[in-house]
Design a protein around this nucleic acid. Structure first.
Lengths: 231, 231
DNA sequence: TTCATAGTTCGATGATAGCCGAAGCATCGA
DNA sequence: TCGATGCTTCGGCTATCATCGAACTATGAA
């Protein structure tokens, strides 16, 4: 009757709260050990082991063995994108996980989405880039313009031509769950976030497992100069 | 502890095979009835009803009640996007066969929907009326314009002011069974169908239980002159 | 070697949730 | 009004699956 690779299989994997906690923990882009993931999900190591095996079989995560540890990471940035999309739907339906803590505003302002910038500032950045014609967006596809390449080289010392990747687009629109608008993903999005970190404009929050990105005072000023809301 | 929206609830909804079949069936963008979705998922109507209630509570689909039918559609294009993303992860082998609508071509073309015209011609008529600015549609509500009143009086000898009814609106958008788009219901829709019959432009099919409406050759010409697709 | 830690496998248990039959509303057609 | 149809609610059955205790394997350290 209906054959084919079920998307229900994949969705069911995400549908379990314990596994879901593991996956969201991995949305930081960092690889975590089985034990850490077990603690993150609030379950015993045995149960976690079973879940991790299923997630791996489903192609959502990939293990990397290191000594007696097994590090797990999301198998693909696309996985993070889909998870972020699900968060958008969940947020709209009003299904927030717990009471909105004090970290919530910071999370909405700037956070890591796997390896690129998300939140208010992330959306602002893509908006500004479109206004400045650094990128062209037609439907879902985003393309870096010639002017955009120059901008990246001059302002951020990023060689756009070096960003091509066999399996990953340079530019990609990623739906932001808190803003419900797109921010920039892809290798360019990742490279820009890397540069912000290198320049000490921004830094990942020290707390383990946190997705919050803190901008320094100087970093915020420089960021606004390039991607300010007004221009 | 954990901030952010709760994905697992949403993902669990998609995670059930039956619900997943329903959702993929709705990815065509068309609205389907509860029965059709039940058949699509290969389950009984009772079970489908339970699933649909859950999907609605989760904000994934939205109902539109139409007589004794309940049409469901995806509540937002974003939902379709996420489903598409999941398909990408699941390494899709696309299979989207949806059987909808009546088999009888005559029924698709023109039929009675309670007391007004439905089918291809019914949808065409409302489209043309909007183009000619005889009616204004904002969301679900439809309003007859001054020009529309003149048109009704001159062309069809219908006194729009006499159509007010204590419990029934003059104009109403009605979701079309075969076209999955709106046609005109309400007392005006009924009055227009009555007039078409009086003028012998159209007649109900003689067969008992048939909802087919047959247009005469002359009637078809006159109808096209007023509500033709081109103008 | 011996011990400690990380992770897995197995088996039993318990709760969740999908499923359908039967019955109940609501709407339509005549 | 009455019967037919679309849909929902209720109750009970069943299967699935997450969970954990216990035991087992593998790596690293002393």
């Amino acid at each position: 009757m209906k054959a084919g690779p079920d998307i229900s299989r994949i969705a069911a994997l995400v549908g379990d709260p314990a596994r879901c906690n593991m996956l969201t923990a991995l949305m930081t882009g960092r690889a975590l050990t089985a034990s850490e993931l077990a603690q993150e999900a609030g379950i015993t190591p045995q149960t976690a082991s079973s879940h991790l095996a299923k997630l791996e079989a489903g192609g959502l995560i990939e293990p990397e063995k290191q000594g007696r540890h097994r590090y797990y990471r999301l198998s693909d940035p696309d996985v993070a994108d889909v998870l972020e999309g699900l968060q958008g739907i969940a947020a709209r339906a009003g299904h927030m996980r717990v009471r909105t803590g004090p970290k919530d505003p910071a999370l909405r302002r700037a956070r890591i989405c796997y390896d690129h910038l998300a939140g208010d500032l992330g959306v602002q950045m893509l908006d500004s880039m479109k206004r400045q014609k650094l990128v062209r967006q037609s439907k879902q596809a985003i393309e870096l313009t010639g002017e955009g390449k120059r901008f990246m080289a001059e302002e951020l010392q990023i060689d756009a031509d070096a960003l091509t990747h066999p399996r990953r687009p340079v530019c990609k629109a990623c739906l932001d769950w808190s803003e419900r608008r797109h921010h920039l993903a892809g290798t360019l999005g990742a490279a820009m976030m890397d540069r912000f970190t290198e320049l000490k404009w921004a830094a990942r929050d020290a707390a383990p497992g946190s997705r919050v990105v803190n901008f320094s005072r100087n970093g915020e000023k420089r960021f606004a100069a390039l991607f300010g809301a007004g221009e």
